[in-house]
């Protein structure tokens, strides 16, 4: 891989990182609106409000950057970056097509899970440094949620890794066969649910429950820093979609249109998962804290262990 090639890949990555979350955000605007019998944004950009999020970005950039008087300035300022960067790293590791990842690592799946867990520190930092009790509560909830859902997430991912016999993401896609859809179905569902919980997306949005704690850890943020947190949320959806695609939906594979256009399938599947995430948000009510913990420990962890067992048995027999 020459330097030029690497540079090109990095630029592409950055473009994806900045554009895809906006696309998901726009889909959310529109899909959610239509699911509620509304139209959503219609003006910005002319055609069905396609430039709404660009306009929002401009608005955010113009806003004052408020630093609460009692806040811890350094931690407060650093937090958004720490929340956003892990997703950039993860996106770099996603193989979009055969041999088309920006960076490839032998233990890709492990690396991805490790890096994704770091993002939470950004939220916890934000919550603590804001000098606001609602922020601290939000941060606590986010941390508690992450600690409980990390386990099923890792176990579900381990099941696929076991099935494929490799920890590398492209390796998993190579080994993937259509019937895995059935074999790894519980794993896929667990991964998606736990991933949603890690992103604090509805129905697991206790950490930002606006009726109780305003906007959780992000309450005190304004302007660009707040925009970074929002970007992190949508980048998280993209990453979750891409990871689900790579691990459970066969990545770039499809009965037809393989060859050079495989990345298109990755994109389509990723957006489909993102749509599912949005759909869940519109349809389901928020889980209470105790329900949330019960779901993780009483359902997802045992189910993930059962899935692991099934995978093991099939691997050994087959």
């Amino acid at each position: 891989m020459s330097v030029l090639d690497l540079l090109l890949r990095l630029v592409l990555l950055l473009a994806c990182f900045l554009v895809l979350p906006l696309v998901v955000g726009q889909i959310e605007h529109k899909a959610m609106a239509h699911m509620q019998s509304r139209l959503g944004p219609m003006y910005a950009g002319g055609f069905h409000g396609w430039a709404q999020l660009v306009a929002d970005g401009v608005k955010f950039a113009q806003k004052e950057d408020v630093l609460p008087a009692a806040a811890d300035p350094w931690v407060f300022r650093l937090a958004p970056a720490l929340a956003l960067l892990p997703y950039l790293v993860v996106l770099a590791l996603i193989p979009v097509g055969a041999g088309q990842a920006v960076v490839s690592a032998d233990v890709g799946i492990f690396l991805v899970l490790a890096v994704m867990g770091i993002g939470i520190i950004g939220t916890v930092m934000a919550g603590w440094a804001s000098a606001n009790k609602f922020s601290v509560l939000g941060a606590l909830r986010a941390a508690a949620q992450l600690l409980s859902y990390e386990l099923p997430l890792v176990l579900a991912a381990a099941s696929v890794a076991m099935a494929a016999g490799t920890l590398s993401l492209p390796g998993i896609v190579e080994a993937w066969r259509p019937w895995w859809l059935l074999w790894q179905l519980p794993g896929a569902l667990i991964f998606l649910v736990a991933g949603l919980a890690e992103l604090s997306r509805s129905p697991f949005d206790m950490p930002v429950a606006e009726s109780e704690i305003i906007f959780g850890a992000y309450t005190e943020y304004a302007g660009l820093r707040f925009a970074l947190f929002l970007l992190a949320e949508y980048a998280g959806i993209v990453v979750l979609g891409a990871l689900t695609t790579v691990l459970f939906l066969g990545g770039w594979k499809w009965p037809f249109l393989v060859g050079g256009l495989g990345w298109l399938w990755t994109l389509v599947k990723t957006l489909a998962v993102a749509f599912l995430v949005i759909w869940l948000r519109v349809s389901l009510p928020r889980l209470r804290e105790d329900q949330l913990q019960r779901l993780a420990w009483a359902w997802l962890v045992p189910l993930a262990l059962v899935q692991l067992m099934i995978t093991g048995v099939v691997r050994v027999m087959g």
Partner: peptide, 8 residues
């Protein structure tokens, strides 16, 4: 989920 999808 079905209700929201139908509405969409």
């Amino acid at each position: 989920l079905a209700t929201t999808f139908r509405t969409m």
